[in-house]
Design a binder for these strands. Structure first.
Lengths: 241, 241
DNA sequence: GGCGGTGCAGTTGTCAGACAACTGAAGACC
DNA sequence: GGTCTTCAGTTGTCTGACAACTGCACCGCC
């Protein structure tokens, strides 16, 4: 009863097999993969199963099908990006993702400082005040914090930044609230206020249109956050180097 | 003949319909979506089509199915990240992706400077020399250049960096070779040698375990590359701010 | 009444066979 | 030689059936 996924469906097995063939290079991009009938006889499954596996691969962008002609291995560039180890992400995994997030956000802050329109700047300030408001109400401000960071990403004018951040955020942010619960309310309040002070520096730098200062402030902010997690990890992964 | 995709298959239509229902909020996360039979009667298609559409959705991580129970809308966090506009990426799109790449690579260089093992350092130097060798042979060095950047990403010790870079790279790198063809061989050689000089600074900084210098060198390198593209874009998108 | 076991309707997973729509190429025709 | 037709092969869709499993109501037992 330890492992819960004994490869449930046949379709998944076939899919795994085909993915292995593609990623392993046995099926080069552009080549036609075996016909459905060939796969049914070779793998000993029904055509339904094969078709479902191929449909899944097509959804992942790994193959394209042409009716009457066959299914072809797509350009590998078409595949999506997934955070590694979607099941049971360990704390080291989360730290890795947070480092990636730091990289993107630091640059986002700088670009925002260069490019933010007045309207975008106002949105950032509003999001910042919303965190204040939540703190005054004595609440956590996870959602508000996320909105603040997203506002900065949107101010870059580059749609890739908010999109990627939203993707990363959905993997990282939820754990933060867990961490806060271990503190006493007083500690927690102090912690949140310090974070808000860091936020203030970021807002100031962006308002001043000072990219390098925005970079420094955002890096400080996220590095501290990262360090807090790293001490949590503690013995699990002490020195990586 | 302008548009070539008149929504080929029924399965795709059903899939689009379901995606719209999910993203539109009509099917909240965790709720069960209609049974296959309900969908067949409602949409007037066979169960085969419905099953294929659901299989595609499951491959995209939008739904999970439980045999004997039903299909459920998955947590949106499970979905993969895709670069926007997979079809016909325009030059501004590429610039956006390159900015994202810059953000990640600058930080990767710094982390590599902090953490690279001797073995990883050696790999980086080898990759760098491979570029030299290709240049001496009078060839372009697109693959070697990519390997060089990947070696740095791997030296971070954080698996997310090389993974993400590989994903981005497959979207950005291929175009570089196109650009080079417009120059004369002499210009081209000069250009490649200058790039190699920039690479040398990066290698030196990482060898010296100097993160901030590594950041600067990598930022310079990629910013120049970005600028070259931006001038190409020219009138298309001149001032973004 | 409470509680555990049993059976059943409902649902997804798989199989089998058939036909429609389309492709690519070989062969027929001029 | 060039064009047209035909045809085997392939994917897309439909239909019907059965297996495997789930959730729940029902029933008997204590």
């Amino acid at each position: 009863m330890a492992d819960k996924q004994p490869v449930n469906s046949l379709a998944e097995q076939v899919m795994a097999r085909l993915i292995a063939d593609i990623r392993g290079g046995r099926l080069a991009p552009g080549t036609r993969l075996p016909t459905e009938q060939a796969l049914t006889t070779e793998l000993g499954v029904s055509r339904t199963v094969v078709r479902e596996a191929v449909a899944a691969l097509r959804a992942d962008g790994l193959v394209v099908t042409r009716r009457g002609s066959g299914a072809y291995v797509a350009d590998p560039a078409a595949g999506p990006f997934r955070i590694a180890s979607p099941r049971a992400p360990s704390l080291p995994d989360i730290l890795d993702v947070m480092e990636l997030r730091l990289a993107v956000e630091v640059e986002a802050a700088a670009l925002a400082a260069e490019r933010a329109s007045r309207r975008q700047l106002a949105t950032i300030r509003t999001a910042w005040r919303a965190i204040d408001a939540a703190l005054l109400r004595g609440e956590g401000a996870v959602a508000e914090d996320f909105a603040f960071h997203r506002a900065i990403a949107e101010a870059t004018g580059n749609d890739q930044f908010p999109r990627f951040l939203a993707y990363l955020g959905s993997h990282v942010i939820p754990r933060q609230s867990v961490r806060l619960d271990v503190d006493t309310p007083a500690q927690r309040r102090l912690y949140l206020e310090r974070i808000q002070a860091e936020h203030a520096q970021i807002v100031a730098a962006i308002s001043d249109k000072d990219p390098s200062e925005a970079r420094r402030a955002m890096r400080d902010h996220l590095t501290r956050s990262l360090e807090r997690y790293r001490t949590l990890a503690g013995g699990i992964r002490n020195g990586r180097r």
